[in-house]
Design a protein around this nucleic acid. Structure first.
Lengths: 192, 192
DNA sequence: ACACTAACAGACAGGTCTGTATATTGCAAG
DNA sequence: CTTGCAATATACAGACCTGTCTGTTAGTGT
């Protein structure tokens, strides 16, 4: 029956953790199709058979990567201090600036993955859809609480600006991003 | 000396044209790394040797694809009827809606390519940089002529909204895009 | 008629990809 | 001690990748 309640490694298995961490780093920095299994297992220090014990295929690893990024993003938003809707929106949008000033920014991992997965019914694309729906709905709820007359439209515009500024931080000058985020929020919201 | 002035095929060679058209279609719909040379030459009906006569390597074909998309976009903007700055900006942004309602939209080809080319010094990335600089500068000049107090910042916001709405047209509901474009322009510009 | 060019078809080399299989090691539970 | 498990290294199959090469065919200018 396997009594693995608080046993030697109750962690999610060190090998699996190392594989996902390495895959996250390599997929994000190099692109998904461009990074092979061989390189991931070599840099993670894991045997190939062990990899295929934890993940049935490469696509499952990609999916685990996307889903973990989604989960981390939602947790970061949930961990924001409770504050009035308008400030909460500013705080959520402010996460764009934080992600960028850290350096090594290579664009939004979800948009990058979507560029490599054209099939909208693939699990990866569906995970991306779920994450976008969550982001839009979170903003819409806050906008509604703030009294926005058309919270769905405003939320769509905030999502678009988020995506666009994340791309701009990758392809243009990241230095301008914090000011642009503030300016975008001000212009899109400051209309009673 | 080759007197090819208005000779039998003054066109850029039918095979080259077919190769670039086929590559454009396949690269855009399927992604760049995911589409191989074999498939391109098969669907273009061109021999492999002929391909390598016209393009030294696959990357040259990718670059030709990106540069042609850039050239076509600039030509479409240049072909817009002359009108006051504010209307010109609306017309340029309106091209987003046109691209989307046509159907088969799979995201901005430049952002998709950038996702697959992490090296900022690669020719593909430099072509993308050039295209983004042109777009930003075009909008900035129009905003300056319109009397915008901070045309560079407003241009950056319009670029971000353009990128974001193009991604939204791919990943969310394309139906809302025309209204969102109009609303974004109104909210970002209507502040004397 | 002859030479040149561009295109064709297709085989091949060398590398890399995903995924499977084999055989061995270390460790912990019972 | 023995049984079982998880991990190791490594080799392999089969597909696909880019790029090169050989040889043939069609059309054109001189």
């Amino acid at each position: 029956m396997k009594e693995n309640i608080s046993h030697s490694p109750p962690e999610t298995s060190s090998a699996r953790r190392r594989l996902l961490d390495t895959a996250t780093r390599l997929f994000y920095s190099g692109g998904i199709h461009a990074v092979g299994i061989d390189r991931i297992i070599a840099e993670a220090g894991v045997a190939k058979a062990t990899f295929y014990n934890h993940f049935p295929s490469k696509e499952d690893l990609v999916l685990a990567y996307i889903e973990e990024q989604d989960r981390l993003g939602r947790a970061a938003v949930a961990a924001l201090p409770k504050q009035p809707p308008r400030e909460m929106i500013a705080a959520i949008m402010g996460r764009i600036s934080e992600a960028v000033v850290a350096g090594g920014w290579r664009g939004c991992p979800f948009l990058n993955a979507a560029a490599e997965y054209p099939n909208p019914t693939s699990p990866v694309r569906q995970a991306i859809d779920a994450r976008r729906a969550w982001y839009h709905d979170s903003l819409r709820a806050l906008l509604a609480a703030d009294g926005d007359p058309d919270p769905s439209v405003t939320a769509s515009l905030l999502v678009a600006v988020s995506d666009g500024l994340l791309e701009s931080a990758y392809l243009d000058d990241p230095e301008n991003i914090p000011a642009l985020v503030r300016e975008a929020v001000a212009r899109l919201l400051d209309r009673r």
